Computed example of a mutant assay.
Amino acid sequence: MHVMFVPSWYHNKRNPVHGSFFKEQAQALQEAGIKITVAYNEIWPLTLLGKVKEKIGFSFNSEDNLKTYRYKNFNYLPKNSKMFSIFNRRLERVYKEIVKNEGKVDIIHCQSSFWAGISCLYIAKKYNIPFIITEHSSLKRAVYIKNSYIPLVKNSYLGADVLIAVGNGLKNELYELTGREDIKVINNLIPTDNFYISNPKNEDFTFFSLAFLEGEKGMDVLIKAFAKYFRNRKAKLIIGGDGSQKEELKKLSKSINIEKQVEFLGALKREDVAHYMSNCDAFVLASKHETFGVVYIEALASGKPIIGTYNGGAEDIINRNNGLIVEVDNIDALGKAMVEIKENINFYNSEEIRKECIKKYSKEAVTKKIIDVYNSLLQ
């Protein structure tokens, strides 16, 4: 079985971790015995004109043992729906190169409709190839999607032989748009082997949070909740991640007199994430919206109880045995949940939390579900 694996965004020389969970899924499928070839239409914004030193056109490399074909070029028609006709032709050239060098493609598996799913539909229909979309992103909250793009995205969803959502909240959104009743839910896989249990002896009870520091992640709500319920108590809040709100959040911490209890780490490497997940006492993320919630799973893989919000993704993940879930933007509910976790920390069994996480979200568990979909298409 040969699968052309098509990410909508992927790592590049300017952002080496972009789309890392796409690559991890492709690697896991390959390890499970599926022949995977990555096809990536690498689209450069015009703001990079004169700055990019790479060659326009085809490139091929074995990237982390994945055969990877790229077509690199600028988007010469930004914000114009005609650009998709150009993208279709670019990806088609990549497809033809893959067939010439790697053999017949049995299935096209696209990660998110925007941008790649639109072009994958074009190729799948033209060459009569089974086509899957796994959607990771909310169309309602997408920053770069213009109204003129929405019919094209909807058509890709309707044209896919199988449409997969990474969470039930996202599934409901896709159903509202398409009316499809056969949408499957297959969660993102997490490299659980990268995370581990330790038994920290923190002098102060330590909450850890990790996200891009942007408005929808609710870091201001978290800081206010921590201040209201833990100011001048033996507790600490460590925040990982970078973003446009970082300095504003630091000022907030100072203005409500908790700056000595709050630590901002900035952007973290993958191994640093594992370290802080393992060495906190509990993980908390108060985001307003999540299609899935990878960081929740990383915390569970580290054996930590978690606190989240009813944000569309956390509901699939959090249960009474591994944490608490509260309303979005509710400072008191969040603060009280943090107090409850702290006071009842011995209720949570790290080994059981990790065991349940691995059962649901390990690469073995998730790849089995994906391969079952592949096999059903080829029967």
Rank of each mutant, 00 (worst) to 15 (best):
S85D: 15
D64C: 04
F22C: 13
G33I: 03
A282M: 00
K104S: 09
F22E: 12
R354Q: 10
G323K: 08
A211T: 14
V52F: 04
K269S: 13
V295H: 01
N15Y: 14
R70T: 12
A225D: 03
D332C: 03
K79N: 15
V105L: 01
T68M: 07
V339P: 11
N88E: 13
D204S: 11
K228M: 05
I238E: 04
D242Q: 14
L324R: 12
A26C: 07
D204N: 15
E31N: 14
N330P: 06
V339E: 14
E176T: 12
E364P: 13
F5P: 09
E263M: 01
E63C: 10
E343M: 08
Y175K: 15
S156A: 15
L170H: 09
K336M: 15
T291A: 05
I197M: 09
G240T: 10
S156W: 07
E352G: 03
L163V: 03
D182F: 12
V262D: 05
V166D: 00
D161H: 13
I133G: 03
K55H: 11
V105A: 01
K236T: 06
A39N: 04
Y95M: 04
K217C: 09
E173G: 07
V221W: 00
K288M: 12
D332L: 03
G293D: 02
L152M: 10
K336S: 13
I56D: 14
S62P: 07
V339G: 06
I34F: 01
K246F: 01
E173T: 11
V262P: 06
N61L: 12
F195W: 04
N168I: 08
V38H: 01
Y76C: 09
S20H: 10
N319V: 02
N346V: 13
E364C: 11
L48F: 14
I297C: 13
N80T: 11
G241L: 05
E340R: 14
K260L: 00
F208S: 04
F21E: 08
P305Q: 05
N311L: 12
E176N: 14
C357R: 05
E248P: 00
K228D: 08
E42T: 06
Y71R: 05
K360A: 12
N73Q: 11
F22Q: 14
P305M: 09
H136W: 04
F347E: 11
K246E: 11
V17P: 00
F292M: 03
H18V: 01
S119M: 09
N319R: 06
A365H: 01
L237Y: 09
Y144A: 13
V153C: 06
R141W: 10
I371S: 05
G169S: 09
N199H: 11
S362R: 00
E247Y: 13
K100C: 07
I132S: 02
E24C: 00
S59G: 11
F230A: 06
E340N: 15
K269E: 15
F283W: 00
F292T: 02
D272C: 00
I132K: 01
Y10E: 10
A274F: 05
K104R: 06
D220W: 01
A32C: 01
R180W: 08
G266C: 02
